[in-house]
Design a protein around this nucleic acid. Structure first.
Length: 278
DNA sequence: CATCAACCTGATCA
DNA sequence: ATGATCAGGTTGA
């Protein structure tokens, strides 16, 4: 490892493995993933992270070192006993600051697919269209996706294929300016994103949260919906649930969402391994 | 405005 | 082994 970044609290396994980003894999005690045009290696350390092949400042921004995580944890912990317990259990789970284009394209593909399939779709698109880099492939730029529609169909994206092409076309032609979205407030950002075919409430919230610095976004997917019903007794349409999260957890609602998501994920994997696999 | 079926595909379950 | 159901939703009626 070529460097060490001091950052705490940080639990690399939770942060990279919780499913907010889709290109990280763990090999032994090292995490390998692609950031921009580099294959990056990370390893958990005491009070920080050892890193290879990435500028420290870039990594720091990606790990949201500028977030006052302790303060956010304290904030959402005050909402209720369950959140307090989850913050304790999953201390060090952080949000990431992902690249807006990559995040948008990825979550466009993520609709109605399970985690395994999301990963395989993203990897095939990268392999087919991304710049080859040492040890892998970069996430393709919009214009690269338009390179060969036939090969894109080979990526097994299903009905998401046409949506991705359309998005890439609109970005390439300047009809959509991704970086321009970064300057908008949360509501406006969501509204603009939803103007994209294949981007609804949930994807717009994910992109706002994971790439646009809108920590008040509270994406509600199938897991969170079940969780809100089971633990908070609330149910209803998307808007209602998302606003429930925002009003209950405040400006750090996005962090709270990650803790709930992680909890449901853990419960599920427990259930799977409990009755003796065969 | 709320509801609801259809939608690609691959994994999981019965 | 083969069919139903589900999975990080969105869309259009």
């Amino acid at each position: 490892m070529t460097g060490f970044l001091s950052i705490a609290p940080l639990d690399l396994d939770l942060t990279l493995g919780c499913g907010q980003a889709h290109r990280w894999r763990k090999h032994g005690d090292e995490w390998r993933g692609v950031l921009g045009d580099r294959v990056v290696t990370l390893r958990q350390g005491e009070g920080g992270v050892y890193f290879k092949n990435v500028p420290a400042s870039r990594l720091a921004a990606y790990l949201r070192i500028d977030d006052d995580v302790e303060s956010i944890y304290a904030d959402i912990s005050g909402a209720d006993p369950l959140m307090r317990e989850l913050v304790e259990r999953y201390k060090g789970l952080r949000l990431l600051r992902q690249d807006p284009w990559e995040c948008l394209a990825t979550y466009l593909l993520a609709t109605n697919a399970n985690v395994a399939r999301i990963g395989s779709m993203v990897e095939s698109v990268c392999q087919e269209f991304g710049d080859p880099i040492d040890g892998g492939h970069a996430f393709p730029r919009p214009e690269q996706i338009l390179d060969d529609e036939e090969r894109l169909e080979g990526c097994r994206l299903g009905y998401r294929c046409g949506r991705l092409v359309e998005l890439a076309r609109r970005v390439t032609e300047g009809e959509i300016c991704i970086d321009g979205l970064r300057h908008l407030g949360y509501e406006e950002c969501v509204a603009k994103l939803k103007g994209i075919e294949g981007v609804g409430d949930k994807v717009a919230d994910c992109v706002s949260l994971f790439a646009m610095d809108h920590l008040e976004a509270f994406p509600v997917d199938a897991r969170i919906k079940r969780c809100l019903k089971d633990h908070y007794g609330v149910d209803g349409v998307y808007r209602k649930l998302s606003e429930f999260g925002r009003s209950r957890f405040g400006d750090g609602a996005g962090y709270a969402q990650e803790f709930l998501f992680q909890m449901v994920g853990d419960q599920r994997s427990l259930g799977h391994t409990q009755d003796g696999g065969r």
